[in-house]
C-alpha cells in the first residue's frame, strides 16, 4: 500500500505528486486534501482554469485528465500522480490557436468569458470523442455540464460545430490516410 500519509502523522503533511501538465513534468508538494483545480491555480500559476461553484455543478474548472474532460474541483491532485493533465493554457501551439479557440473567437462564443476555458476544454474533448453524436442536440447534451450565465450557448454551439473536423488530430488523419 502506498502511504502518502497515515492518520498517526499530521494529516496536513505535504506529499510529493508528479504529474504531466500541458506536456511538462511538474512536481507538487501538497497536502492530500488539495484538489487539482487549486493545485493548478495556486501552486502552478495556471489561472486559466476557473473556480466557479467548486462543487461540480458549473463546469468552469473543466480540464482534461488523460484526454477526458473532468471537473478539476472534485479531483484530488494527489490522485493525478502519473497522469496527463491538459488545461486551457495547453490548447494553443506554436502553430497558433487551437481550432476550437479560433472558432470561439470567430463566432463570438462568450460574453464575460469566465466560463470560456471550461467550455473550450469540454468542446475539444467532445470533438475527439467518436462516441458522441455530431448533431446539434448531441453536442448540446454533451456540453450541458458547462453553464454560461451570460447565455452564450447559441454561439458556443456554432463555434463547436464550425471547429469540427479542424482539430489537429483530424487534420493529421486527413494528411496521413
Amino acid at each position: 500500500m502506498k502511504e502518502y500519509s497515515t492518520p498517526a502523522e499530521a494529516v496536513d503533511a505535504e506529499t510529493t505528486v508528479t504529474l504531466t501538465v500541458n506536456g511538462e513534468t511538474r512536481q507538487l508538494a501538497i497536502p492530500p486534501n488539495v484538489v487539482l483545480l487549486d493545485a493548478l491555480r495556486d501552486r502552478l500559476g495556471l489561472t486559466g482554469t476557473k473556480k466557479g461553484c467548486d462543487h461540480g455543478q458549473c463546469g468552469a474548472c473543466t480540464v482534461h485528465v488523460d484526454g477526458q474532460a473532468v471537473n478539476s474541483c472534485l479531483k484530488l491532485a494527489v490522485m493525478c500522480e502519473g497522469h496527463e493533465v491538459t488545461t486551457v493554457e495547453g490548447l494553443a501551439s506554436d502553430a497558433g490557436l487551437h481550432p476550437v479557440q479560433q472558432a470561439f473567437l470567430e463566432q463570438d462564443a462568450y460574453q464575460c468569458g469566465f466560463c470560456t476555458p471550461g467550455q473550450m476544454m469540454s468542446a475539444t474533448a467532445l470533438l475527439e470523442d467518436e462516441r458522441i453524436g455530431t448533431d446539434d442536440a448531441a453536442v448540446r447534451e454533451a456540453m450541458s455540464g458547462n453553464i454560461c450565465r451570460c447565455g452564450a450557448y447559441k454561439n458556443i454551439l456554432a463555434a463547436i460545430q464550425s471547429a469540427r473536423g479542424q482539430s489537429p488530430s483530424a487534420q493529421q488523419e486527413s494528411e496521413n490516410p
Binding site: M1, K2, E3, S5, T6, D12, P31, N33
Partner: peptide, 23 residues
Amino acid sequence: MRSFAFSSAENIEQAVSAQSDNA
C-alpha cells in the same frame, strides 16, 4: 476542506484491511 490522511490501495485486500484497521 477538512484535512485527511490519504493512501492508495494496490489490491482489494489492502483496501479492505485499510478500512478494518481504521474502524
